[in-house]
Structures are given as structure tokens and as C-alpha cells.
Computed example of a mutant assay.
Amino acid sequence: MAPSAIETITVPETPTAEQLKLHTTEAALGDYKELSPTRFSHEDEVAGKDGFAPSKYPNYLPTWNPDEHYPPLVPFEHYEHGKDADPSYPDLLPKDSSVRVDLTPTIGSEVSGIQLSKLSNAGKDQLARFVAERKVVAFRKQDFADLSIQEALDFAGYFGRHHIHPTSGAPPGYPEVHVVHRAADDRTAENFFKTRTNSVAWHSDVSYELQPPGTTFLYILDKPETGGDTLFTDAVEAYNRLSPAFQQRLHGLKATHSGIEQVNSSVARGSIKRRDPVFNVHPLVRTHPATGQKSLYVNPQFTREIVGLKKEESDALLDFLYSHLALGADFQARVKWEEGTVVVWDNRVTQHTALVDWKDGNRRHLARITPQAERPYETPFEG
């Protein structure tokens, strides 16, 4: 049984204002890779223009309110519903009404024939466990986008406290919804690719928080005809592929995760800062509270250094782990978006990256709801 992140895990001191100032000064914007969309015309998105169709879900168009500010997040006791699930999934995947296709042996499944919004609490418990086991699941032909925004938030709130992103766009009045939006005829990528060879940016969402996300929901609103897929990598299988000697060396090591660069990047573009940036220390290897599986927990977007190692040592070890996760095509899955798709994944055991690979100027519009989970912890090395 996994320990309670609040009751039995020793939480290091919160960084002091002086430490935060120093870290902010040292943080380089170049360490954070983000292909940011340009500002867009709300009127053109609603009405359509120059041959591009109107936005299908204008209620989800993003806004950035500069007057919206929030205090620092405080610890909370997360309850992991996946621990209560029947692992045969009778309420989630009834044999007479659902179709399940596994994309690879260890990561990725597609499910059709059920409606997430109609799940009972037992079905939600099983959803949390199923997603923890399969890492990422695409549920097809869902009505999620057609619910009211509050109904979608109420559903996802079962899985943890809603995270409010420090910089992302959100529908008016719903800062808990992280909007992923590239407007029709947005050509930002053309300038980006003048200095970059690809749009790949592996990460686990907001891993810099004291209690990063667990079960996470992303649903499609508008999409290009082709392109804009999302890649996922299995951080559990990545850990399992390492030699026992290397696994043992990683146990006990911790790394800093920083949200400073993300906030600095937003401010540098003249955008918002809802909350002062933070950095926190997490183990390189974390344990999932429902499955007991161990996974690698570092990512190049937000991890900065390994505590206690010299820079060259830290860089060498982190670079190996980043490459190992990114190059492991035999433990990755690619999700192709279809109308009505809701993708659910577990941020504790995966990393992902969006792909900006379409060139026809079509809109890409999604909404993410991001329940927070426990403080990352590790259990002893088992050999």
C-alpha cells in the first residue's frame, strides 16, 4: 500500500524568497521550448474568415485576463480513487457495450461504446486504475465537449483538485480549463521553424508543482484534417528497461522542477502571470499509489538539475534519461485525434508532446482539465 503523500512524506522547506529570486535570475528562457500561438481575432474565430470555418466551440475560446491573480497553492490530501477499483473494470468496460483496442503492449488503448460522462463513481474509480495501467487511453465518440464547461469540471473534479495554470488561456470565468488553441490561419510555426528543426517538447504537465497532476483529461474541439497528433511515452517501461544497477543508482536522487521559465516566457510576450512561479524538488523515480509501479520522473521542459551533483554530472545523467525516454519508440504511442475524442492519461507515469506538423492554417483547439494528485514519492529499490 502506498504511503499518504501528506501524512508520511517529509516535505522539504518551501524555497525562500531569496532562493526564488536567485533561481529566477539564473533561469534562462532558452531552457524552455514553447511554440506559442499568436494573438487572434475573437470575431474572426466566431464568424469564420477567408475560407476558414467558424469555431465549433466559441465558448471555449481562450482569454488571458491580466487582472486574474491567485495566491500560492497550498498542500492538500489527495485521495487516489484508482486504489478502490475492480481491476476487471465491469463498470467501465462492460463486455456487451464497449470495444477496447490496445495500441501497443505497454502503452495506449482506444475505447468506444461507452460515455465517460455517464460513468458511476465505481466506473470513475476503474477509469483511474485503467488509465494508470495503460498510461493513455483515447475514448472515441464522446459527448464531453458538448457538456457545459461546469459539467465537465464537475466530472473531472472527482479525480483531484483542479489545477489553475499560471499562464495559459482559459474560457472566461473558468480558469481551471487549460485551453490549447491555434487559431485559423495562424502561421506562427513558419517563424518557429526558421530556428528549430522540430516541435517536439517532451514533458509531464506542470511537474514543478508540489503536487503535480495525475489523471488528466484533454478533449478535442476543432482539428486540422490531418496532423496535430500527440505522442506519449511510457515512463514505467522506460524505468523497467534500465539495468538493475542503474535503477538502484537513480533511487534516492532528487531533481528540481522549475516553472520559472514558463512564467518568464509568458511575461516576455506581454501575456499573463496568474501566480508567482515556483520550483520544487521531486524524486527521479516515483511510485504510483494505485499500481505500485515505478516510473522515471524527469522531463526536459521543467527539470533543471539533480540535487547534490555537480553541473556536468547532473547534465550528463539528465541528458541520458531525456534521450532514453524520447528515443524509446518501442514504448511510445501516437494518438490521432478524431471528432468527439477525449484522451485520458496519467501524468505520473507518462510524458507527452504535441506535434505542430500541419501547414494548411486550419484551427487546432482542445481543452484540458488537470486534477492534481499526491506529492511524488518513491518506495525502496526492489532489485
Rank of each mutant, 00 (worst) to 15 (best):
I6T: 09
I9D: 04
I9E: 04
P12T: 01
P12W: 03
E13G: 15
K21G: 10
T25E: 14
A47E: 13
Y60L: 02
Y60Q: 00
L61I: 11
L73V: 11
F76W: 05
E80A: 12
A85M: 11
D91Y: 14
S97Y: 11
D102A: 06
E110L: 07
V111G: 08
I114C: 06
A122D: 05
L127R: 02
L127F: 04
F130A: 09
Q142W: 03
D146H: 12
E151G: 01
H162E: 00
S168F: 13
E176H: 01
V179K: 00
V179Q: 08
F193I: 10
S207W: 03
Y219V: 00
I220N: 13
L221A: 03
K223L: 14
R241E: 04
A245C: 13
H251C: 10
H251E: 09
E261H: 00
S266R: 11
V267L: 14
P277G: 04
P283N: 04
T287M: 06
T291K: 06
Q301C: 09
Q301R: 15
I306F: 05
G308Q: 06
K311L: 08
E312Y: 07
D315Y: 00
A333C: 12
V335K: 06
E339L: 11
R348W: 00
V349Q: 01
T353S: 15
D360C: 10
N362D: 14
I369G: 07
E374F: 15
